[in-house]
Design a protein around this nucleic acid. Structure first.
Lengths: 236, 236
DNA sequence: GAGTGGTCTAGACCACAAT
DNA sequence: TTGTGGTCTAGACCACTCC
């Protein structure tokens, strides 16, 4: 399944190259990437081959092209879909509000059977666990209960989650491959209700999310939101 | 050769042609469309130009290509994203369960100011209103409270919503242009709780959705789900 | 005017499917 | 073996942007 074809087409190699360099930060959002002519020379292929690579990346919204001007790295697409990979801190700040977080737990633990199964690792595999409460203008809006695969984020424990959220840190060290999620409404358990400063009879909007990176399960997160003051929105 | 002063590029004309013929039913799902060589001859263009048209339609999931075999019309595929435009009936049946619905209200009404604003129409504009409860294996899973723009679905009131859900009907008469949605968790109001056969203290997962079609607001729907037995899931 | 992307050609060789 | 798609070339002309 994961076997690479014996021969990768030239246009694909160019796409891979561009994606790699963008990921590596060689060109940042808004920067111009090399012209078709330059890439054609660099890869020793015809311009049409480069054109295909760049055109496809453009249709994938990785690049923007402006005729007569050049090709540029597109703005990172704020996850179009509902389940924002975008950090909650960013979201709050985007609304012009103040974001603050409280770290309630940060630990390392050997996976028991249940966790090991969820992460598709062996029992005993080291996992990191953090519990953080996020505030918007001093009002609690999210409890983030996160499990992290140590194989993908060795120094998770030494992070300072007050200035940089786990999301922001993990996006850096483990490029996202895919996401599974589910959303449900439940009554808040006492522990969660306390952290959110709501009654345990109140409805919570709960987002479960599992992210994959480098063909492993990277994180499993449960986010609890007070139903009365939080909602997911989106459009397409 | 004679450079075409084409306002529309040749590859785009070929895409349009194929889309039109598929829409018209010339080729149905699974049917083979003409080969690249045949299209090149028909449009008097080079094979590469046809290739681009067909390749793009393939990446748009309109067509499937099988090397050595041919190009085929793909299966119509519905919204992959979370907020399924897919009807709940279809979803339930896909799980191998029985779907049943109860019509609790079906009426025509002149928009008051609030509704008129939401629909971006004048006050007094005719709107249709339906309230339907959906059951999965005789367990209530959704209350669907729907407002419909009469301009886009004149015969909404004469539909038999037991055999065909509003969703299914509307998808036919008003091709979807876009969707806005939000999801929240709330305590069930008494009227909703009764229809779902839950306690009014229970958490409900509520999906608000506004669809656009033909540059108008087509429908505004609120879907109430018992939090304990319903969740949204997805991946990307 | 130089540089960029947008499009197109008329061939070519290959891998794969159907026969 | 024939027909199909998959890829690629080495040019070309055009529209547009930027200097």
């Amino acid at each position: 399944m994961a076997t690479t074809p014996a021969v990768t087409p030239a246009f694909q190699m160019i796409k891979d190259f561009l994606l790699r360099e963008i990921q590596a930060g060689t060109w940042k959002e808004g920067d111009a990437v090399p012209s078709e002519a330059a890439l054609a020379q660099q890869f020793n292929v015809s311009r049409m081959t480069v054109n295909r690579a760049v055109r496809e990346l453009t249709s994938e919204q990785i690049l923007n092209r402006i005729q007569g001007s050049g090709t540029y790295v597109a703005q990172q697409k704020y996850q179009a879909t509902l389940v924002a990979i975008k950090s909650i801190a960013e979201e709050v700040r985007a609304r012009g509000h103040e974001h603050r977080s409280e770290l309630h737990e940060l630990s390392s633990i050997e996976a028991n059977e249940s966790l090991a199964e969820k992460f598709q690792v062996n029992a005993g595999h080291i996992l990191f666990h953090s519990v953080i409460v996020h505030f918007e203008n001093e009002i609690a809006i999210q409890v983030e209960d996160r499990w992290v695969n140590s194989a993908l984020a060795q120094d998770y424990l030494t992070q300072n989650f007050i200035s940089k959220t786990p999301n922001e840190y993990l996006m850096e060290v483990a490029p996202l491959q895919g996401v599974d999620y589910s959303i449900e409404a439940v009554m808040a358990p006492k522990s969660i209700a306390d952290m959110l400063h709501i009654s345990s009879k109140d409805a919570c909007l709960v987002l479960h999310r599992k992210t994959r990176s480098q063909n492993q399960i990277a994180t499993i997160v449960t986010m609890w939101h007070p139903g009365t003051r939080y909602q997911f929105t989106g459009s397409f």
